[in-house]
Amino acid sequence: MQLKQLSVFLENRTGRLAEVTRTLGDAGVNIRALSVADTSDFGILRLLVDKPKDAVEALNSVGLTVRLTEVVAVEIVDRPGGLATVLSLLQGSSINVEYMYAFMERHRENAILVFRFENPQKAITILQEANIKVFAAEELVEM
């Protein structure tokens, strides 16, 4: 149930993000979700894409450092307190969240949260036991 997230090292300079997204576009890769963690000098671009393998190849070919990271995507009802419910559940089981970001589903009323856990397998078990939807890679592609 873990998804492959692409993490890309970028220097913090004008136009860099545009170049990277253009590279992916030219390779026919569609971005599903994205977040950027940045400092004054550099940023880490995190991406969920429909074709991770093609994306890594395209990014490597322009000399970028890419790492595949296992993340977990979870469906959350889009209403006040939706996120808090999930986080409380994880907190109760002492699961650490390294970082997270959210995006909206296109045709439904729900939000999707992408988590990077220290121990993703354990987190998935706990989430599924609480009947929270965890996405498989194929579902993300079809979305």
Binding site: F9, T39, F42, I44, R46, T65, R116
Partner: peptide, 15 residues
């Protein structure tokens, strides 16, 4: 230069 070997997807790793 940040090579693949030393890259981390977390800011605190690189910091």
């Amino acid at each position: 230069e940040v090579s693949e070997e030393i890259f981390s997807d977390e800011v605190r790793g690189l910091e």
